[in-house]
Design a protein around this nucleic acid. Sequence first.
DNA 1: GCCAACGTTGGC
DNA 2: GCCAACGTTGGC
Length: 154
Amino acid sequence: MSKKQYWLMKSEPEVYSIEHLKKDKKTLWSGVRNYQARNFMKSMNVDDEVLFYHSSAEPPGVAGIARISKKAIPDPSQFDPKSEYYDKKASKEKPIWFCTEVSFEKNFPKLLSLHQLKNEKSLADLLLLKRGQRLSVQPVDEAHFQYIQKLGLK
DNA sequence: GCCAACGTTGGC
DNA sequence: GCCAACGTTGGC
């Protein structure tokens, strides 16, 4: 049994918001086409917890909490020529891209904005606020996760 | 294997 | 819409 891990996953609410996830209850996190993000997804375990982040939003920020409900499987969209995520270098025998299943846990009563996060001294070394702002899937320290969750549920 | 050119993400 | 940051591609 591996230790529980914490993550932050970004989605553009125009495309897929936490409200969509709430309605769907769970979703396959397909379409990630960045090797670092993929590697993080491959190391996720069931019950890992996720900060659901709204990017390119007004304002951007953490919208709620989700949970990993299925370990990474080959991302079906890489095999679909009609998909915008189609990758002709991938095959069923040698898939390149992977995705986990993510389930809705809760939304924050009010979006915890990026601006608010930046104002928190104890979050100064949160990956989101430093390098890799562009990384769509990233690890979060347990302490940071708990702190952000507490802020979000206020 | 280097690195310039190019593409993408995402905050502002 | 701009542009900084950074990932990827491809010529050499």
